[in-house]
Design a protein around this nucleic acid. Structure first.
Lengths: 234, 234
DNA sequence: CGTGTGATTGACGCCTGTCAACGTCTGTGG
DNA sequence: CCACAGACGTTGACAGGCGTCAATCACACG
C-alpha cells in the first residue's frame, strides 16, 4: 500500500486522457504501479534542482510545476510549465545527465515518481512507448526552437501578448473567465525574458487599450483578437 | 551501385567516429546501405524547407548545413549547423510532422538520404539505437533551452562573443588559425538574433580591443579568455 | 504592529534597431 | 578588357524600447 493517494494504477489515472503511458501493456502498467511512488508536493517545494543527478522522472497527477533555468545573476528563465498528465525530468534520466533545469511547484501538486530503471526498461522494451516518448521530446524541441525565434526577433510587448494567449490556451480559464494559472509579475517577466517593471507597464498599457482586465494577480483577456495582433500571431 | 560516393557502407563511413548509427547490427547496416541514397549538394541548395513534409532524414558525410526558422518579415533565425556525422530532419520524421525548419547548404556537402520507413524501422527494432537517438534529441533540447536563457538574458555583445567561442569549439580552426566556418555578417546576426549592423560594429570593437583579427569574412580569435569574459562564460 | 514580499510609478540613459549613403568585391556579359 | 549589376560590408545619424535604480504603496502573516 505504498502509493499514497488511493494506490491508483496508472492505467486509469485521472490525469490527461492520452498520456504518455497510453501504449503500455497491462503487465507494464502493473510494473509501473508497483515501482512508482506518489506523493503530495506543497507550493514552493523543489522537485529537482539544476545540476543535481535525478534518479527518476515525475508524472504530474495534478498541480502546476514551473521548469526553469538559472541564468546570469541567478535570474531565472522559465522554460515551460508542467500540469496534469505531463511527465518531467525524463530528459536527464534518459540521457543520464545532470538535471539542466529546476522544477518548482507553483500550485500544490501530486507527483508520481518513476525510477530511472523503470523508465529505461519501458523505453527499451516497448517500441510504441519509446516512440511516444521520442515524439514528446521532439515536440518540446520544436517548441523550444520556435521560442528561440520569437525571443530573438520579437519585442517584449509582442512576446508578453503572445505569452498571455499561450497561458490561456494551455491552462484555460476559471469560472470568472480569468486565466486559470496565477503568476507573479516577476514570473511573467521570467517567461518573457524581461524586467518585472516592463511587464507591469505593458500589462497596464494592455489594460488601457481595453485588451485586459486586471485584478491583482488575476488576468482576464477581453480582446483576444487585439492581443493576438499585438503578438504578431496569425 | 546507387550510392554515388563509393557505395560506402555506413559501417565504415568516414564521418564522425561515434556517430548515431554506431549500435546497428551488421544486418541493419546492410539494410541502411541498401535503402540510403547519397548525393552531392551545392552551396546554396535547400535540403528541405520549413512547412513541407519530408520523406526521410539526412546524414551529413561532409560539408555544412545551416538549419533555420523563418520569423517575422522573413528574417531567418539560425537554430544550429550540421556537419560531418550529424543527422538532420529526424525530428519531423519521427514525429510525423511537417518540417519546422529549413536546411540550406552553406558549404558543398554530401548527404545520405535515409527513408522515413527505414529510420522508424530501426528505431522500433533496435533499442540501443532508439536510446541513442533519444539522447541526441534530448541533447538538442538541452542546448535549445540553454540558448533561450542566453538570448533572453544576455546582451547582444555577450551573445556575439559566445557565438564566436561556440563556432570555434564546434568547427575548429583552419591552418592559419582562423575559424574554419565562414559566415556572412548577416548569418552571424541571424544566430545572435540582432541586426547585421550591430554585428559589424561589435566585431570591430572586439578587434579594437585586441580580441579578434578580421580579414573579410575570416575571423581569428586572438584573446580567447577575454572573449569568454565578454560572453560571461566561465 | 513590524516585517517581508510583491506591485507600481517615475526618472534616466544606454543599448540596439532602423534608415540611408557609400565603399568593396566578384562574376557576368558586351 | 572594361562596365555594370548585385551581394556584401561599413559607417554615421537618430530615436525609442527597455533595463536599472529608487521610492512608495499594497497586502499578508506571525
Amino acid at each position: 500500500m505504498k502509493n499514497s493517494p488511493g494506490k491508483s494504477s496508472c492505467e486509469n489515472c485521472s490525469s490527461k486522457f492520452n498520456n504518455i503511458f497510453r501504449n503500455l501493456s497491462p503487465e507494464e502498467y502493473e510494473m509501473l504501479a508497483l515501482d512508482k511512488n506518489c506523493d503530495p508536493y506543497k507550493r514552493g517545494s523543489i522537485v529537482y534542482h539544476e545540476g543535481n543527478r535525478i534518479s527518476g522522472s515525475y508524472c504530474v497527477q495534478n498541480g502546476i510545476i514551473k521548469i526553469y533555468k538559472t541564468g546570469i545573476d541567478g535570474k531565472e528563465q522559465i522554460i515551460t510549465f508542467a500540469q496534469k498528465g505531463d511527465i518531467i525530468g525524463f530528459r536527464s534520466v534518459l540521457s543520464n545527465e545532470l538535471a539542466c533545469t529546476t522544477a518548482k511547484v507553483i500550485e500544490d501538486a501530486n507527483l508520481c515518481f518513476i525510477p530511472a530503471t523503470t523508465l529505461v526498461h519501458l523505453f527499451k522494451n516497448n517500441a510504441e512507448f519509446s516512440l511516444d516518448l521520442m515524439q514528446l521530446a521532439c515536440k518540446e524541441l520544436g517548441e523550444s526552437n520556435a521560442y528561440i525565434t520569437d525571443i530573438a526577433q520579437k519585442t517584449v510587448r509582442e512576446r508578453l501578448a503572445e505569452v498571455l494567449i499561450h497561458l490561456r490556451d494551455n491552462f484555460g480559464l476559471d469560472n470568472d473567465q480569468f486565466l486559470q494559472i496565477s503568476l507573479t509579475r516577476e514570473e511573467l517577466a521570467n517567461i518573457v525574458g524581461t524586467a518585472t517593471e516592463s511587464v507591469i507597464r505593458l500589462l497596464s498599457e494592455f489594460k488601457s487599450d481595453g485588451m485586459l482586465e486586471l485584478h491583482g494577480r488575476r488576468i482576464k483577456i477581453l480582446d483576444s483578437k487585439g492581443l493576438k495582433k499585438t503578438a504578431n500571431l496569425f
